[in-house]
């Protein structure tokens, strides 16, 4: 059907959360396919199920019903340590609150997943870190701790950390929610740029329509259901603004 191979597939996915005696039905039958190299946003109002969807794709949680296939593996069949391994090897995460490790400096934060992966020499790690930090434009701040950086800088460190392992998919849950709109746009543009230059698949969520508009595909969620799955008006790297200081 599609030109590019699917990397993530959701089929009839339901996610229920127990809440006291009640059950919160966060996702109610979601069918979605994400292709390699796509730059997709999951949009929807607060409580519509965006985070839940990303958690399932990100292998930090599993579906109540239906199947989630990530890079060919069905997540419900995997045990905890395998899911962790999958996250480590194939996925990158960008969080709404940046979630850097406060006691480590920029370099160490970015190097951390490489250490978890193992297999690289110190020199190899260092060049990988420098390379990606350079791409997010923070070479000058290499030795600084997160609390010495601005919000936008922190999120760029997070992007570097997510990309340094060269993952197949990067997931970002409302990466701009804690940033002012200018900085937020710059972050999205950076992601878009990296999507195009590194060919990494990006799936990010937002409830901000201006941010939404920068994605090439918008999956619209309402009450745990996909109500719209359309490709945006602007596509391609041409639309990406220069890297602004966030």
């Amino acid at each position: 059907m599609r030109a590019m191979p699917a990397i993530v597939q959701l089929q009839g996915v339901h996610k229920d959360y127990p809440l006291g005696n009640l059950v919160v039905r966060a996702l109610r039958g979601v069918d979605l396919t994400f292709d390699k190299g796509e730059f997709t946003t999951v949009a929807g109002p607060s409580g519509s199920g965006k985070t839940t969807l990303l958690n399932l794709v990100g292998c930090v949680d599993t579906a109540t019903r239906g199947t989630v296939t990530v890079d060919g593996a069905s997540t419900s069949a995997l045990k905890e340590s395998k899911l962790t391994e999958l996250r480590l090897r194939k996925l990158g995460f960008i969080f709404q609150s940046f979630n850097l490790i406060g006691v480590l400096n920029l370099f160490q934060n970015v190097e951390f997943p490489l250490l978890l992966q193992g297999g690289l020499t110190k020199g190899e790690r260092e060049s990988r870190v420098r390379d990606i930090v350079d791409k997010v434009g923070l070479t000058e701040q290499m030795k600084q701790r997160p609390n010495e950086l601005s919000g936008g800088q922190r999120q760029r460190v997070a992007i570097a950390r997510a990309l340094v392992t060269r993952p197949s998919i990067v997931l970002a849950d409302e990466p701009t929610a804690n940033l002012d709109s200018g900085t937020g746009n710059a972050i999205i543009d950076l992601m878009k740029h990296l999507n195009e230059t590194e060919h990494t698949t990006f799936i990010f969520s937002t409830h901000d329509s201006r941010v939404m508009s920068r994605a090439s595909r918008i999956v619209q969620l309402v009450d745990g259901k996909v109500v719209d799955d359309g490709h945006g008006h602007r596509t391609g790297a041409a639309a990406v603004a220069p890297l602004a200081e966030a």
């Binding site: 996250r87 480590l88 969080f95 951390f112 997943p113 978890l116």
Partner: peptide
Amino acid sequence: EIGTMRAIGAQR
């Protein structure tokens, strides 16, 4: 912090 480490691939 621990959740983050676990999310980005740290084993238990």
